[in-house]
Amino acid sequence: MYTSIVQVRQPRYQRIADELRRRIDRGEYASGRLLPSEAELSGIFDASRVTVRRALEVLRDEGLVDSRQGFGWFVATDPVRQNLARLGTIESQLAEEGIESTRRVLDFRFTKAPARVRQVLGAETVLRVRRLNLADGEPFALVTVWCPEELGAELSRADVERSPFYELIPVPLGGAVQTIGAAAASAAEAEHLRVPVGSPVLRCERITCAADGGPVLVSEHVFPAHLTEFVVDLPHAEASIAPTGLRLVE
């Protein structure tokens, strides 16, 4: 008696899904990292975009990948929840999520203050530091900080690469005002954050004051929109269901 064994060949989309799954498991595509575009994957696997998209949808059903308008496909990740109810650093927020945080200083210089910074700080010359914050080795935020020259005069590039400004400037700190809005990634921002040009980002301006109430730092934080959420507790219900602090952007 002969037994015939028929090997069923997997559909092409399933084989592509299996290979992408292996690459994710090996860490070739890190959590939160963008995958190649559908067109690029079509070239890599010599398959139609319809086939590639079906493979990606299989992985999305498994919770391994996700997609956002303007981003494309990325390895699924839980966004970091940043609490707006207290003044904290990116490093402390990431540490609370169990994420390793590192910083890379891109620019360190004393320069003429931009009009907005001059208006807030009342300083003609400022220390401008631009840095990239990494979360588990992947870009998480592009940050620019402006500090009055007299408060930053003793600081070095190594200082700001090692520690937050909150630990470095020689004045006791009070509170801060944060303004958060939606924006599209510029070419420079996209390059550093490894997202497509024009993709959604959250842009946060923070004005930090000394204990006596005077502004001492202006900072701008740019976050890829799929990697972070801002959370605030609203313990008391009011008549309006709209969140507080809304204003129209002119």
Rank of each mutant, 00 (worst) to 15 (best):
D78K: 14
T51Y: 03
L121D: 01
A190H: 06
L142Y: 05
N133C: 09
L134A: 07
D46V: 04
L34K: 02
E91Q: 15
T179D: 11
V216T: 11
L121H: 01
S163L: 14
L234K: 08
P79Y: 06
Q7L: 14
Y29A: 11
R203Q: 14
R54H: 14
T111V: 12
G198R: 00
V129W: 05
R26E: 15
P148K: 07
L94A: 06
G98V: 06
A55T: 09
V52L: 11
P11A: 14
R86V: 08
G174E: 01
L34Q: 02
G152A: 12
P11Y: 03
P79C: 10
D18C: 00
R21T: 01
Q82T: 04
P11N: 08
E91G: 13
T208P: 07
L234Y: 08
G122A: 12
L87V: 12
E189N: 09
W73F: 15
E238A: 10
R131E: 06
L151T: 02
E238I: 06
A85W: 03
V216S: 07
A55I: 08
V8L: 08
T102K: 04
Y13T: 04
Q69E: 11
V160Q: 03
T102I: 03
R109L: 11
I241F: 08
G137W: 11
I16C: 05
V160T: 02
L193V: 06
A184Q: 04
C147S: 08
A153D: 14
F74T: 13
S186E: 03
G198H: 06
A76Y: 13
L56S: 05
L234V: 12
C204D: 00
D46S: 05
Q119N: 14
P170G: 07
L234E: 12
R53P: 08
D136P: 05
G245D: 11
V145C: 10
F140A: 04
P79W: 01
L132E: 13
V120S: 13
A158F: 09
G152H: 05
T51E: 04
A242C: 07
A95Q: 15
A135S: 06
E238S: 14
S4I: 14
R131C: 07
E19G: 03
L41D: 01
R157G: 14
Q82S: 09
L155K: 06
L94W: 09
G88D: 14
V117D: 00
L248H: 10
H192E: 15
R109I: 09
R118V: 02
E250G: 04
R60L: 06
A176T: 10
S156Y: 09
R118H: 11
D233V: 14
R81F: 01
V160H: 07
L227N: 02
G43P: 00
R206F: 00
P139V: 08
A188F: 05
E149A: 15
D136S: 15
R49C: 06
F223D: 07
V218E: 03
L59D: 02
L94C: 11
F108C: 10
V249H: 03
V117A: 01
Q93L: 03
T144F: 06
F223E: 08
A115T: 12
G122Q: 10
A185Y: 04
L227R: 08
I207Y: 00
E229L: 11
S163E: 09
A176P: 04
A183D: 15
R130K: 15
V231I: 15
A176Q: 13
E191A: 04
D61Y: 00
P243Y: 10
L127N: 10
E149W: 09
V58E: 15
E205V: 12
H221N: 13
L64D: 05
P172N: 10
E28M: 13
